[in-house]
Amino acid sequence: MFEIRTRRQVYRMAAVITLFAVLIPVLTFALPFAFFGKAYFGFFAIAVFPAALIPLFLAPPIAIIILQMFRRQTLTIDKVDEYIRYDALTGVLTRTYLLGKSREQLAAGGGAFLMIDADHFKAINDTHGHDVGDEALKKLAEVLRKALTTEALIGRLGGEEFGVLLPGANQARAAMAAEAVCSLMRSEAGTIAGHEIGLTVSIGCAVHIPGQTLERIMKRADAALYQAKRTGRDRVCVAEAEVSVQEPEAVVADTAGKPARGGDRNNRRLTRQRPQPVAEQADQQNHLGQERQAEAAAALPARRVLLDEVPGMQCPADGEDQPEPVRR
């Protein structure tokens, strides 16, 4: 793409254009002179000067005007692109651009997503003013750039909440990176704009699972962030990995009572089955309970249970009226 951003580029390009504008007519008149020799010299001497002077005077201003238009167009595109890509306050990626690049990275090689939220940020705005709150957000973005690698995609999701994608990171690497952010915040965000604030962050982390969408990963990271907030803030919580994504499966133990191979009864075989609807599961459990009750009733011999045999109960003597059993 043809791009011009500086005035120096404009003048250089104008000089090149002027040179070609002068050389082309001069060479056009000089080429016959090479064939006809001195017989053509008089005509060449008359025609060559206007052919060189006209583009020499006309080409530079026209070239500069056109090139300046290209320059302004390029600078306008850069401003629009910067507005779309970068947050105006903090300089990190915008939410839209961050999510778009994160989807590309997850499709290419996975990674981990961090949800980062400034602790007690509303209290900072209410106590010190929104200008100090803006400085706190700038400090948070600065700490994120320092603590994380250059490959990390850092963006502002909204308000005091930031998102970070760590391409190709596993759970251990993601947890270490999050802990590094928390530690650096404690050491560098104590004083902001001359105010003793002691800004800290809470972080929720979720590792990408193949087949899982970015929205699902962010939801898991957000749940981990909520857990970090609820358990005291200024800490990192990692979301548990899920069993499956595209087709959820439940892990159930083989309860047949047979020991597994090798004689260890505790080492029971694990099987995976797809979850059934709740109504169907309830019907099966009721049916199974009825069958077990019927089997138990058939297996036990019929026997009369005397009240004397029941602890805490009394039975009257023969011939007496037998009132209702009374507990002692």
Results as ranks from 00 to 15, higher is better:
residue 40 Y to N: 06
residue 100 G to L: 11
residue 58 L to V: 15
residue 67 L to T: 00
residue 134 D to K: 03
residue 107 A to C: 04
residue 70 F to T: 00
residue 24 I to S: 06
residue 43 F to A: 15
residue 57 F to M: 10
residue 117 D to A: 04
residue 95 R to P: 00
residue 113 F to E: 05
residue 28 T to E: 00
residue 146 K to A: 14
residue 94 T to E: 01
residue 150 T to V: 08
residue 33 F to V: 10
residue 22 V to Q: 05
residue 132 V to Q: 05
residue 27 L to E: 08
residue 41 F to M: 14
residue 107 A to L: 12
residue 59 A to M: 08
residue 48 V to H: 05
residue 95 R to C: 13
residue 18 T to S: 14
residue 129 G to D: 07
residue 74 T to M: 00
residue 28 T to K: 00
residue 103 R to H: 09
residue 85 R to L: 09
residue 32 P to D: 09
residue 45 A to R: 14
residue 102 S to P: 01
residue 142 E to K: 05
residue 68 Q to A: 00
residue 35 F to H: 12
residue 71 R to I: 05
residue 134 D to M: 03
residue 115 M to E: 10
residue 143 V to Q: 08
residue 148 L to E: 12
residue 108 A to G: 06
residue 27 L to G: 14
residue 30 A to L: 12
residue 95 R to A: 10
residue 95 R to F: 09
residue 83 Y to F: 10
residue 88 A to Y: 06
residue 104 E to P: 06
residue 83 Y to Q: 15
residue 132 V to R: 05
residue 50 P to I: 08
residue 158 G to N: 07
residue 147 A to W: 02
residue 30 A to W: 13
residue 60 P to V: 06
residue 120 H to K: 12
residue 157 L to G: 03
residue 78 D to W: 00
residue 62 I to Q: 02
residue 67 L to Y: 00
residue 42 G to P: 04
residue 123 A to D: 12
residue 102 S to T: 15
residue 58 L to K: 02
residue 137 L to P: 04
residue 124 I to V: 15
residue 38 K to H: 09
residue 152 A to S: 10
residue 32 P to G: 09
residue 18 T to I: 09
residue 136 A to F: 02
residue 34 A to R: 14
residue 117 D to Q: 05
residue 55 P to C: 04
residue 114 L to H: 03
residue 121 F to G: 02
residue 99 L to V: 06
residue 12 R to Y: 10
residue 41 F to P: 01
residue 54 I to C: 07
residue 124 I to Y: 08
residue 13 M to W: 13
residue 69 M to G: 13
residue 112 A to M: 11
residue 79 K to T: 02
residue 126 D to M: 07
residue 143 V to P: 01
residue 100 G to P: 01
residue 144 L to Q: 01
residue 41 F to H: 11
residue 20 F to G: 14
residue 158 G to P: 06
residue 49 F to E: 11
residue 144 L to Y: 02
residue 51 A to D: 09
residue 25 P to K: 03
residue 20 F to D: 01
residue 95 R to G: 02
residue 42 G to H: 13
residue 37 G to L: 13
residue 73 Q to L: 04
residue 42 G to M: 08
residue 82 E to D: 14
residue 88 A to I: 00
residue 61 P to K: 04
residue 104 E to F: 05
residue 68 Q to T: 04
residue 43 F to C: 03
residue 128 H to F: 15
residue 132 V to K: 04
residue 88 A to K: 11
residue 117 D to L: 02
residue 58 L to Y: 06
residue 30 A to S: 10
residue 109 G to L: 01
residue 119 D to A: 08
residue 133 G to N: 07
residue 37 G to A: 11
residue 111 G to P: 01
residue 123 A to S: 10
residue 68 Q to R: 04
